[in-house]
């Protein structure tokens, strides 16, 4: 490699006054290039041919299976309160104020700040589309009515938040009707 002595100008390389050296390639640059090529070969073999490479979809399914197993465990632990337990929650001002917070943040965009109804139905009257009992309300909040736009909140809100907001909606309804969206659904006496 004598011809590549540092900073020796190349014979007959002259373009509009620009000349060229022919210095050796920087070593570290060559190694870097070779390492990335080696990585490429190994990675493609690992992913496509070795049978050990886990692809994105498989990893997703693994994550999901684990998640669903955890969900089942959590569901068993976080059993929905019974009607009596709910009524007890509804009597606790602390629970109600956290329920109000969740309501204003999540529910008010469709049901209005006072529950008077905007896109979603009025929650302060005595008419209920999916049943007005406490447990029926709980059902709608948790599982939603996706075809009408009611979000299934279970999984988005934490269990505490969901139970608090259910208790809050129940109390809201007891406070009496607010003028808002016209009544929809069936009359349920007592608003329960």
């Amino acid at each position: 490699m004598n011809e590549s002595d540092d900073d020796k100008l190349m014979r007959d390389h002259e373009y509009d006054g620009i000349q060229e050296y022919d210095n050796n390639l920087p070593r570290w640059w060559v190694y870097k290039f070779l390492i990335t090529i080696a990585f490429a070969v190994v990675y493609m073999y690992w992913m496509q041919f070795s049978g050990s490479g886990k692809n994105i979809w498989d990893e997703y399914m693994t994550d999901r299976t684990a998640y669903e197993r955890d969900e089942m465990l959590r569901a068993a632990k976080n059993m929905r309160p019974s009607e009596e337990e709910f009524l007890a929650l509804a009597a606790d001002p602390l629970v109600l104020s956290s329920g109000e917070l969740v309501f204003k943040e999540r529910c008010a965009s469709c049901h209005g700040l006072k529950g008077e109804g905007i896109v979603g139905p009025n929650l302060t009257d005595h008419y209920w589309i999916h049943g007005g009992s406490l447990m029926e309300i709980a059902n709608v909040v948790e599982k939603g009515v996706p075809e009408k736009g009611m979000v299934p909140w279970k999984g988005i809100l934490k269990p505490d938040e969901i139970y608090a907001v259910i208790a809050y909606v129940h109390e809201l309804n007891k406070k009496g009707e607010v003028e808002g969206k016209a009544a929809e659904g069936e009359f349920v006496s007592g608003g329960k």
Binding site: Y21, D22, L25
Partner: peptide
């Protein structure tokens, strides 16, 4: 002058 002709090629 340009540093390296062979680097240009590669």
């Amino acid at each position: 002058p340009i540093f390296s002709y062979r680097l240009s090629i590669i």
